[in-house]
Amino acid sequence: LADDRTLLMAGVSHDLRTPLTRIRLATEMMSEQDGYLAESINKDIEECNAIIEQFIDYLR
């Protein structure tokens, strides 16, 4: 059971955070005209990261 939990934490961490990191990188490359959009996307990314952290904390 502990091994399954560790594997799940690693999978969640990698499989969800990697795309979020790519999205954040894309927002950094957006033009200044789209700053409001990038800010909104980054806020959503932070919310997703917080949910992931809560899930990982729960698994521990």
Rank of each mutant, 00 (worst) to 15 (best):
C48M: 02
L16H: 15
S31P: 12
R17K: 00
N42F: 07
D15Y: 02
I41Q: 02
I56Y: 04
S31A: 07
G11I: 15
D4I: 12
L59G: 13
R22W: 07
Y58I: 08
V12D: 06
D57A: 08
Y36V: 12
S31E: 07
C48V: 09
A50R: 14
L37T: 05
S13F: 08
M9T: 14
L37N: 10
T6K: 00
M30P: 09
R24T: 05
E46Q: 05
A10L: 09
A10F: 05
D15G: 03
A38T: 05
E53D: 13
R22F: 13
C48P: 14
L25W: 03
A26E: 14
L59I: 13
D57L: 08
E47V: 04
A2N: 14
E32L: 06
L20F: 01
D44Y: 13
I41D: 15
I41G: 01
F55D: 03
I51H: 04
L37M: 11
E28F: 15
E47I: 14
A10D: 03
E46G: 09
E28Q: 14
D4G: 09
R22D: 02
I51K: 00
A2W: 15
N42G: 13
R17M: 09
A38Y: 06
D57R: 11
A50Q: 11
E28G: 12
I41Y: 11
L8T: 05
R17C: 10
D57H: 07
Y36F: 15
T6Y: 02
L20D: 03
D3C: 07
D4W: 09
R17D: 11
L16F: 02
E39C: 07
R24V: 03
Q33E: 06
S31F: 06
D4R: 11
R22C: 00
A26K: 12
D4M: 15
L1H: 10
R22Q: 09
G11F: 15
L7T: 05
E28A: 07
N49H: 07
A2T: 14
R5F: 09
P19Y: 00
R22G: 07
M30S: 07
L25T: 10
T6H: 04
N49M: 14
S13K: 08
A38G: 08
A38S: 07
Q54R: 11
E53R: 09
H14I: 02
D34E: 07
E28T: 04
T21D: 10
L7Y: 00
E32V: 06
V12L: 10
R24P: 11
D34K: 13
T6M: 13
V12R: 03
I52E: 07
D44C: 03
K43Y: 05
L20H: 13
G35H: 09
Y58V: 10
T18N: 11
E47W: 03
E53F: 15
A38K: 13
V12S: 00
E32I: 07
D15S: 01
L16V: 10
L1I: 13
R17P: 08
I56M: 15
E53K: 12
R22I: 13
L37P: 14
L59N: 15
A10C: 02
P19N: 00
M30W: 02
T27I: 13
D15C: 01
T21G: 12
L59S: 10
D4S: 10
L20I: 00
L1V: 12
D15M: 00
P19R: 10
D57Q: 15
D57M: 08
D15L: 03
P19V: 10
Q54H: 04
G35R: 06
N42C: 10
T27A: 03
A50P: 12
S31D: 06
Q54T: 04
I41V: 15
I23G: 00
D34T: 13
R5L: 09
D44F: 05
T21F: 08
V12T: 08
D44K: 04
R22E: 00
E39I: 12
S13M: 08
S40L: 00
E32D: 05
D57E: 07
A50K: 00
E47F: 11
R24Q: 10
I52Q: 05
T27H: 12
D4C: 13
T6N: 03
V12G: 03
L25C: 03
C48G: 05
I52S: 08
D4Y: 10
E39Y: 04
I23K: 05
T6E: 00
N42M: 00
N49Q: 04
T21N: 01
Q54A: 09
Y58Q: 06
L25G: 11
I56E: 00
R17V: 03
T18H: 03
E47C: 02
S40F: 13
H14A: 03
L16I: 00
I52V: 09
C48S: 11
P19S: 01
P19E: 00
S13P: 12
I51P: 04
R5G: 07
V12A: 11
Y36H: 07
L20N: 02
D44M: 03
A10M: 02
G35D: 06
G11C: 13
P19W: 10
I45D: 14
S40I: 14
D15H: 02
T27Y: 10
A10S: 00
M29K: 04
T18L: 09
V12H: 06
A38M: 05
R5A: 12
